[in-house]
Each structure stands twice: as structure tokens, then as C-alpha cells.
Design a protein around this nucleic acid. Structure first.
Lengths: 279, 279
DNA sequence: ATGACTTACGTCTAACGTAACAATG
DNA sequence: CATTGTTACGTTAGACGTAAGTCAT
């Protein structure tokens, strides 16, 4: 049987044009290459080179062999990579989500019930999540609506309600509730990477200038120190310390309340049962 | 670098289900297989099996690896075959022809001017010849008509005239010439594998019952011993001894005369120049 | 005379098989 | 206890590099 190493020798020889240079590049002695090429010809049962006493060069068959060898070596590299990717996927619990809060919640549950697995969490657009679920890039995705599908199971597992977080001096600071429209037109602080909420804010508050901050601690500093309104939610308030200098006002619109559903392929139900049981 | 031998071990193990049986089938000792599989895992940097103290079986990654390995081994076999075919082609002078006479003539010339090459000669339908020329299965094809083409050169090199070969007692035995139509309706002797002539006979003499013989010596015996009419040609009469008990009568129709053209790809002109010069 | 490839030769690695071991059913 | 897979160990084949040989520029 031919060896992949011989094929590697062949294409290195082609690149270097002489056996001597190829030997240097391969960190082997030059006679090894002579023998390697001789053996390759024997095993393929074809002649690959034209030889004179001190010159060896590719013949037509040799050129074809080199191009085929190159493809074959690529394929083996692909094979290795494919196997490694496959194995990593086997040991990774990948969740995609449309929003941060349910992702944090779900991430906790997963690391609790599947502690041996690596955890991969991503916030992505919903179209990408759908695609990723079907192509098994994610074992679970978190979506803000239900689905009826032959392959996909969908179960609700948490709700999130948004609030306005207003400085005490704000003109609405003492209201019982506010609508999104009423607040539209000011400047507001906003975290980045908040998934589908971002699209919701832009749609329902088109005249608002959002000052987007991607560092969470700086965001909290700004909430504390500036007089800019911002958003918060019931989930955030349960898990983080509440700002002292703020009034928290419920948002009236239905868009400010989301129910999150955990979607997974039905074929994975068994794998997921210990998690699903505890949601 | 992984070795193809290891991949062969892998799929043999999969077929045999235990290392021991696989070792027998591979004619190696069983510890060799243990080590081979361990090394394969190391080199791929993935785990392929689940092991207990005296049991080893494929895990999911291993199953994927086996299927990929199988494809890869197929590819190497294909590579070897492809190279051998290519080399054979390089050393073969392949001619396809629509008729036997020009093929004999051309074959002689080729073995004269390219004695180092193997000679492959075939009589085939003209559509197959065209295809074979374009796909380089033939370096030359012999056709009964001319062509004007960007890629193909065509040069006339011989003519062949058919005659009726009649027993002395035949009613037309003393004619100066005969038409095909006049002879239509009798039984006639015919060689098989005569290329496009066969189609011509059937078209121009639809009522004739042809008794087809594929052994040339038996054909000549029958010509000598039977009273059945047959065909011959100027080329055949030049190269073979003429039958004594026959009258040779020219055929009037233009279909009974062919001019043969040698077609080849223009890109091969240089390779063929010594032959073409002597046609 | 320098650099190319092949062949010859002595060394030593690493792959092999046997044997011993451990576990299962 | 028969069978399976892994580990230990001694042997040897074969792959390596050095050196020598031959040819070309």
C-alpha cells in the first residue's frame, strides 16, 4: 500500500524542482527521497519520472500523479479536521438565543445538569437561530414565540417584562406606568448585544437616540451617574443589584413583555430530558 | 502523518467487529491492531472508541471516521488505476475506423513509424469514433468523408472500390458491371465487423439475405466452395490471393466507392508528423 | 569543481510477534 | 475457561544517514 508520506514527498519534490532542495525542506537526507520516489513508482506500478545519470524530472504521468496526490492529501487533512469538529460538537452544548436574559438562565441550567459538557452560548438573529437549529449547530435555541412543527418541539420556560429606569428628576419619574410612544424622542442608554429587543426598540421608538454601550460595568456606571433614561427588566432586577437613584416604571405596551420558548429537534428529546424536566 | 494502512485496519475492524478477528483477516498479530488503533487516535487527535477492559467498540466519531476512511481508501485505489490507465494511453497508438481496409493500411504505417508504441485498432460506429476522438480515446480515426472543423484536421489517404465476387455459373458472371439494385434479393456471403459497409449493404440491398461469417478463413473457404455471391474490393485483392473460381465484377453505384479520411485533433499534429508525412 | 542523483553500507529505531496479564460472561 | 483487549519484552526487518560513485555543467 502506498503511504501518504510518499505523496507528500512527491509534491514537495514538485515544488522544489530537485530532490536535494526537497530533502532540505523535508528535513531528511537526499537518498531517502530517491528511495521514496522509487518505491512510489513500484507501488503505483507506473513510471513517474525521466531520469538521466544526474537529473530526475517529472514525466506526464508524474505530473498527473502530483496533482492527484495533492488532492488526496487535502482530503486527509479535511478528514482530520472534520473528525475533530465532530468530536468537539459531541462534547459541546450549544445554545442560541434571541435575547440575553433567557440565555443566562438556560446557561445556568445546562451547566448544572450537563457539567461535563462545554457550553457555547450565542445571541443571534432569529433567522440564523432557525438555520442553526436545523443544521444542528445548536442543540437548543431560545425564541420569543411558539412554533408547531413536525421536527421541532417548543416549550415556554420564562417571561421577561421590560421597565423604564428613570432618574428621579425625570418628568415621568412618578408615573405608575408609561408607554413606549410617550418616551419616544429622548436620548436613552442601551446595552449592545441584546438580541431581538434591539429591533423592538428601534421599531417602537423611532425618534429616540440610543447611546449604545457594550461594556456592562460601564453601562451600570452610566446608569448611576448620568441622567439618561434606560431600560431594565424583572429578570435583570432579580439578578443584579438595583440602582438607588432610579425610579422603575412599568412599560404598558405588550411589546415590552416577552415569553421565551425553548426550541429543540424532537430527535434530541432523550438527550435533553434531564434538562427539560427541570425547566 | 496518518498512514493509509491504519485506515485499512480501521475499516477491517469495523467489518470484523472484534480486533482478534480483524487481525486474522489482515494476517497480523492482534497486539499490532491494538497499537495501530491507538496510534490512529493519537494522530487524528480524537477518540474513536469506547473501551472497557476486554471490549473495544466504535463511538460516534469512530463510525464517522470509518466512513471517511473508506472513501479515502477508494480514492487512493482510483488514483492508482487512473495513473495506470493514463500511462497505458501514453504508450498506445489508438486508431478507430469505420471500415477494415483503411484500418489495416493505417495500422501497418503506424507500426512502421511508431514501433515502440502499442497499437490499438477498433472498428466502431462513426458516432462513437467522433466521440472517441474528442475524448482522446483515439489519436486518429478513419472516416469515409471530409470535415471542416476548428479542432480537427482531416486528410484523405486512400480509396476503396467494392466489387461483386460471383461464381462462374452466376447469371451475371460475364457482365462488365452490375448495380447493387440488380443483385438485390439473392443470398450473399458477408464478413462481419466491416464497419459502415454493413449499413450500406442493408440500405442499398434491403431484400438480400446476408449470411454473416465472422471467421475470415472460414469466409474464404466458403467463397471457394460455395456458389454464393460475395463482395470484395480493390484493397482486398491487392493484399490477399484472389479466388480462382470467381468472376470479379465492378459495382456501378457511387456507394460502392469510398474515400477514407484520416481525422486527428490539430493539437496532435506535431506528434503525428512522421506518420502524416508518409501517408 | 560544484552540484546533481543513485548505490553501498553500517547503525539503530521502531514495528513485529510471543507471552504474560486482566477482565468478562 | 474460553475469549477479548492491553501491556511487556526480546528480536529483527527495514529505514535512516554517511559516504562513495558517476555524471553533467
Amino acid at each position: 500500500m502506498i503511504e501518504l508520506e510518499q505523496l507528500q514527498h512527491l509534491i514537495t519534490f514538485q515544488e522544489c524542482e530537485t530532490l536535494s532542495k526537497a530533502a532540505k525542506q523535508l528535513h531528511i537526507s537526499q537518498p531517502v527521497l530517491t528511495r521514496s520516489m522509487q518505491k512510489l513508482e513500484e507501488e503505483l506500478e507506473v513510471s513517474l519520472f525521466t531520469r538521466t545519470k544526474n537529473k530526475i524530472s517529472f514525466n506526464e504521468t508524474g505530473l498527473l500523479a502530483a496533482s492527484l496526490a495533492s488532492r488526496l492529501l487535502e482530503d486527509t487533512k479535511d478528514m482530520k479536521k472534520q473528525l475533530q469538529d465532530f468530536e468537539r460538537k459531541l462534547h459541546t452544548f450549544a445554545i442560541g438565543s434571541c435575547a440575553p436574559a433567557p440565555l443566562l438562565y438556560m446557561g445556568q441550567k445546562v451547566s448544572q445538569y450537563y457539567p461535563q459538557k462545554a457550553l457555547l452560548t450565542e445571541i443571534k438573529d432569529m433567522s440564523i437561530l432557525m438555520k442553526g437549529l436545523k443544521e444542528k449547530d445548536y442543540i437548543i435555541i431560545i425564541m420569543p414565540y411558539n412554533i408547531e412543527d413536525y421536527d421541532i418541539e417548543s416549550i415556554p420556560f420564562m417571561e421577561e417584562q421590560l421597565f423604564f429606569s428613570l432618574p428621579l428628576s425625570h418628568r415621568f419619574a412618578n408615573r405608575k406606568s408609561i408607554s413606549l410612544k410617550e418616551m419616544d424622542g429622548e436620548r436613552m442608554l442601551l446595552m449592545s448585544n441584546i438580541g431581538f429587543w434591539h429591533e423592538m426598540h428601534q421599531r417602537t421608538m423611532p425618534h429616540t437616540k440610543f447611546i449604545i454601550q457594550n461594556d456592562r460595568s460601564i453601562f451600570y456606571d452610566l446608569v448611576e451617574l448620568s441622567s439618561l433614561p434606560s431600560f431594565t427588566s424583572d429578570y435583570v432586577m432579580k439578578t443584579e443589584t438595583m440602582p438607588q437613584n432610579r425610579h422603575i416604571i412599568p412599560i404598558e405596551d405588550k411589546e415590552a413583555k416577552a415569553t421565551f420558548y425553548c426550541w429543540y429537534l424532537k430527535e434530541n428529546e432523550i438527550k435533553l430530558k434531564s434538562l427539560l424536566y427541570h425547566l
